[in-house]
Amino acid sequence: MSKTKTKGVKLDDTTHKRLEELARIRDRSPHWLMCRAIETYLDREEKYEEEKREDMDRWERYQLTGIAVTHEKAAEWLENLAEGKVTACPR
């Protein structure tokens, strides 16, 4: 079982009422909803940060080498995918 820690969250009256109402409708506790909301947010933001890091790595690699996939190759690959023809990503 993982260890848990308590964090306090201050909510304005409107947000608090919305949380209570959704918890009632979903037959869940406000705590459960807040935990799921935080997990969802963290998953999304961590993925965004990872993609941003990958983009920066690609940009730096391009600046160092000048090597890039041409628009024509990328467009052809995407057209093939749209037609259901799965081919290796152009490099």
Rank of each mutant, 00 (worst) to 15 (best):
residue 33 L to I: 13
residue 38 I to K: 07
residue 33 L to P: 01
residue 85 K to R: 15
residue 24 R to V: 06
residue 45 E to R: 15
residue 18 R to Y: 07
residue 40 T to N: 12
residue 17 K to V: 11
residue 41 Y to E: 08
residue 54 E to F: 06
residue 70 T to P: 01
residue 18 R to Q: 14
residue 28 R to T: 11
residue 2 S to G: 07
residue 47 K to P: 00
residue 29 S to N: 03
residue 45 E to V: 02
residue 47 K to L: 08
residue 88 A to W: 04
residue 63 Q to E: 13
residue 7 K to L: 10
residue 5 K to Y: 12
residue 23 A to V: 06
residue 9 V to G: 01
residue 76 E to W: 05
residue 71 H to D: 09
residue 76 E to C: 02
residue 21 E to L: 15
residue 49 E to C: 04
residue 22 L to Q: 06
residue 13 D to Q: 13
residue 67 I to D: 11
residue 18 R to P: 00
residue 11 L to Y: 09
residue 80 N to V: 02
residue 26 R to Q: 14
residue 43 D to G: 03
residue 3 K to G: 03
residue 87 T to K: 08
residue 9 V to M: 12
residue 48 Y to L: 11
residue 27 D to A: 10
residue 33 L to V: 03
residue 85 K to L: 11
residue 22 L to P: 00
residue 3 K to M: 12
residue 73 K to M: 13
residue 55 D to C: 08
residue 27 D to T: 10
residue 57 D to Q: 12
residue 54 E to A: 14
residue 23 A to I: 05
residue 15 T to A: 13
residue 50 E to M: 08
residue 83 E to K: 15
residue 62 Y to C: 02
residue 9 V to I: 15
residue 68 A to K: 14
residue 50 E to S: 09
residue 30 P to L: 00
residue 38 I to S: 06
residue 10 K to E: 11
residue 39 E to H: 09
residue 8 G to C: 01
residue 13 D to C: 04
residue 56 M to R: 15
residue 70 T to L: 04
residue 14 T to N: 11
residue 85 K to H: 09
residue 79 E to H: 07
residue 14 T to Q: 12
residue 66 G to I: 04
residue 41 Y to T: 06
residue 65 T to M: 01
residue 13 D to R: 10
residue 32 W to Y: 15
residue 10 K to I: 10
residue 16 H to W: 11
residue 31 H to L: 02
residue 52 K to R: 15
residue 34 M to H: 01
residue 41 Y to C: 05
residue 67 I to E: 14
residue 64 L to E: 15
residue 45 E to D: 11
residue 11 L to W: 07
residue 33 L to R: 00
residue 85 K to D: 03
residue 61 R to Y: 06
residue 3 K to E: 13
residue 18 R to I: 12
residue 22 L to Y: 09
residue 90 P to H: 03
residue 48 Y to F: 11
residue 52 K to L: 12
residue 88 A to Q: 09
residue 18 R to W: 08
residue 7 K to N: 07
residue 35 C to N: 15
residue 8 G to D: 10
residue 73 K to E: 13
residue 51 E to G: 02
residue 74 A to K: 14
residue 65 T to H: 02
residue 68 A to M: 08
residue 87 T to Y: 05
residue 20 E to F: 06
residue 57 D to G: 00
residue 91 R to L: 12
residue 40 T to V: 04
residue 36 R to D: 10
residue 41 Y to Q: 08
residue 7 K to I: 09
residue 38 I to G: 01
residue 10 K to M: 13
residue 65 T to R: 02
residue 39 E to Y: 04
residue 46 E to G: 00
residue 20 E to I: 07
residue 67 I to R: 14
residue 17 K to L: 15
residue 36 R to V: 10
residue 57 D to V: 10
residue 40 T to F: 07
residue 30 P to Y: 00
residue 71 H to Y: 10
residue 39 E to K: 11
residue 86 V to E: 08
residue 11 L to M: 14
residue 76 E to K: 12
residue 90 P to Y: 03
residue 69 V to S: 02
residue 17 K to P: 01
residue 49 E to P: 00
residue 82 A to W: 04
residue 55 D to I: 06
residue 25 I to W: 03
residue 60 E to M: 05
residue 48 Y to N: 12
residue 38 I to C: 11
residue 16 H to Y: 15
residue 64 L to C: 02
residue 89 C to S: 03
residue 4 T to W: 04
residue 19 L to N: 01
residue 11 L to S: 03
residue 8 G to Q: 14
residue 58 R to K: 14
residue 81 L to C: 07
residue 34 M to Q: 06
residue 19 L to Q: 01
residue 69 V to H: 00
residue 62 Y to T: 02
residue 80 N to P: 00
